[in-house]
């Protein structure tokens, strides 16, 4: 079952001479439970693609369908709500809220939705990610790997349809990177999550079920 698909997705910055085609007609589709990595050099358009997939930015043309919903048909406010329910994000620089503790950061998307967190489920995530000892710590007291594990937990907390990871190991050393990626993979399997990860690192990309290559805004590798 296809959980995510794009159709002729284009994003063009600027006009005339200075026109930059960040995305030049991208068509991809991702099945439920898949772990897909999108690989490309810097400037290839991979980050733009991820932003589009997550509904953070609007395309110049084309559309993105997540869980059967054309997300750009939604207004900003509705899109944000759709996002917090259906899409989880993991960023290179973790992006945790500094004034909230680990647990509060993890349940933030659920609470923003005005729902009570599913304690059993969240407890399982915390256990899997080995965070149970750190729940009351503030983010700046954690190591980079720990912070990224919190970010993964946060991405999973709302039981989204899909998790989008933007260079999740970009700020981590190689040992920690391996750990984090391993955890990502384990959790995605255990909680049957779909993950789309972008990276410029071939080695890391290899851990995914499938690799999509992007170059100059176009898909060039196996789809």
């Amino acid at each position: 079952m296809t959980i995510l698909s794009t159709k002729n997705l284009k994003k063009i910055y600027g006009k005339g001479e200075s026109e930059v085609r960040a995305l030049n007609g991208v068509d991809i589709s991702v099945e439920r439970g898949e772990f897909v990595s999108i690989v490309g050099t810097s400037g290839s358009g991979k980050s733009t693609l991820l932003h589009m997939l997550g509904g953070l930015d609007r395309p110049t043309s084309g559309n993105v369908v997540v869980d059967g919903k054309n997300i750009f048909s939604l207004k900003d406010e509705a899109l944000t709500i759709f996002r917090r329910r259906k899409i989880g994000f993991i960023f290179q620089n973790y992006n945790l809220v500094p004034v909230l503790n680990v647990y509060e950061n993890i349940v933030l998307p659920v609470q923003l939705d005005g729902k009570a967190p599913d304690k059993a489920y969240i407890g399982k995530i915390i256990d899997t990610l080995g965070l149970s000892q750190k729940l009351r710590n503030l983010p700046n007291n954690l190591s980079g790997g720990q912070q990224q594990r919190v970010a993964i937990a946060r991405a999973l907390a709302a039981k989204p349809a899909i998790i989008l990871a933007d260079e999740p190991t970009g700020n981590l050393d190689s040992k920690t990177s391996q750990d984090v990626l391993g955890l990502m993979k384990i959790t995605s399997q255990r909680f049957s999550q779909t993950i789309v990860m972008i990276t410029h690192n071939e080695e890391i990309a290899q851990l995914a079920d499938r690799i999509i290559r992007i170059e100059d805004g176009k898909i060039v590798g196996p789809v």
Partner: peptide
Amino acid sequence: RGVRATRGADVFSMALANMGR
């Protein structure tokens, strides 16, 4: 301390926490 009692992550308590930044 580097720790904080869990009060929840609603808008209200986030705002309150921000005052202490």
